[in-house]
Design a protein around this nucleic acid. Structure first.
Lengths: 186, 186, 186, 186
DNA sequence: AATGAATGAGAGTTCATTCAT
DNA sequence: GATGAATGAACTCTCATTCAT
């Protein structure tokens, strides 16, 4: 792996083990097996590094979420697949899930835009918006439909991170997805 | 207001205006109109102070949520009331909502127990648990039922904080609550 | 002495012993017998501290130079007195002399104005300017008259600092002043 | 131009554009169009490099100053020519003038000898010393005679660098030289 | 009880120098 | 000879905490 990616991965790891607050560049360097100075060869500042990491994760998430997505297919199929992909991504990359949540709630960093916070919702927003036009979902405000689909997933992930539920269980996973589908479908 | 509460309130305000990261005891004292030293007469450390604040907010939240709650009443009534109370509390105390979210996602502080994170869910958990026993809700794992009820509310609040929806609108509020009810009801 | 002045004095001392380049806040604090943090209670930054020190020295210099100055007197008296005062000030405060010279030649710091560099010349400029109007000095450009009076003083001071001449010798002092006077007088 | 000279020239340029303080080897290399490593093939350290540059400038200055100098000629001619040469050199090589001044006042670097500071005065010292023996100059201490000749030139240069006088003006130049001559001549 | 000047460890960042290529 | 990624000590500055008043 190239050094830039090593740094990003180590950061991701550290943020989740110690939290933003206890994170410091010296530890990051030590954990990554490089020197402090080297970090600054690849990133201008701690802040930029964190922002870059966030962008990378969002991009990875979006890609994962759109896996297997087909434009012309029935909404139900696409919706369930997307939610399933999201869950799978989160479960496989708990660090990424935790990072996104921490980042979102941190007036901690100077984000370039406030909207960054909602970047991960974009794919879901898009298909719900289209379904809304075609009246294939409940007649509720779009943001609410998104919240009904995404909110429970996040809540379940929080419980999973805390070790309170097992999202690796396929049955539970499909129950979540079905329940969310029930919430939005006509 | 007594000095202890002034400090807690100022902290709440500051955390949301500047974020945990940019928070510092000097500013806290200045904003509260006292000296740094005084802060330490009431709280042992910054960390303890934050933890205390969290506990206080959770307690306030729980009280607000249980407002009007009747033991013997129909589940639907209690459920909707509870969700409505939660929404009202959050909307009226955005600072508290943001604080809770930030705190939850912060391995920032050494929490006394991980379970603290889920303290606010307790009332909801309790009534859902009872309803489950009486088979008044869908036959789904309890945590999922809680997530179906609470997740969308949190998601909507995030959008509200970002100025993307207006939760002061009564119609939207009842749409949210109804939708959540639909998700869990038999 | 108050702490603020202790810091300024220590800085003055250190700049001359070690030079701007080797100066660092830790040593400054140690030498001043305080902690690093304390320095920042009195000055916003290293740079501001140096700029403040410069301003203070210039002010002290100007005051010293105008000592005994009388508005209505013969130009020759005022001129010689001013030059004598300057020499006395420099000799008594070698550190100040060295500091001024170092500061002047340092694109080292972000000066608020370039003109700061010439602030110490103001009193001399003023009396020469007046004398010029009254045709009491040679018919040469004002800047040159200033240079003829001040340049040799500075050059002598440099030699004094290097231990090559003894400016505490009264005879040498009056020779310098007389020679400068000869340079500008009609 | 060979690489060694390129480095020296770039250094000279950079010191005057950014000052000693903001100078760093990476920028030096970039500006010189070489790599950092290469710099160290030609110079042992930053400090040595600066010291070498100083020596080179002093040498260039001395050569320029002695241009046209004739051993047997009248002192006045040699004196005026020397001062004229110095002025011309400084005006043509402002960077060199600024560098010399910065260097002189910098306990910034560990100079090999303190006397280095006065190296540029040597030619002037020499002819004044000879003239003194032959009683062709005022009966004043030699260092003062040197200061009377050189001090005003430096002062005028400082004003020139700051854009306050125009030393490219031939009349001003001859006024300076004449005035200095008046200061030292019998 | 209340103050706020003082502390100093530790933060983020820089940069002269090295060395494997 | 030439490179430039890598180093890590040292820099400026911050801030939770203390304690004499």
């Amino acid at each position: 792996m190239n050094k830039r990616d090593t740094i990003l991965n180590t950061m991701l790891h550290l943020v989740n083990r110690e939290g933003f607050y206890h994170l410091n560049m010296k530890n990051l360097a030590k954990e990554a097996g490089i020197s402090v100075g080297t970090t600054y060869l690849y990133f201008d500042s701690k802040e930029k590094l964190i922002n870059e990491l966030y962008k990378k994760i969002v991009q990875d998430f979006k890609e994962a979420v759109l896996q297997g997505h087909g434009e012309g297919r029935v909404f139900q199929i696409n919706f369930k697949e997307m939610l399933g992909n999201a869950l799978d991504f989160y479960v496989k990359n708990i660090d990424c899930f935790s990072f996104i949540e921490q980042y979102t709630y941190s007036p901690f960093l100077f984000k370039e835009t406030q909207d960054e916070n909602f970047a991960i919702l974009e794919p879901l927003q898009k298909i719900i918006s289209e379904a809304k036009l075609k009246k294939e979902v409940k007649n509720l405000p779009e943001p609410l439909l998104v919240a009904l689909a995404h909110g429970p997933v996040i809540s379940m992930m929080k419980l999973f991170v805390a070790g309170k539920v097992n999202l690796k269980d396929k049955k539970l996973k499909s129950q979540i997805i079905d329940a969310c589908w029930q919430s939005v479908k006509l």
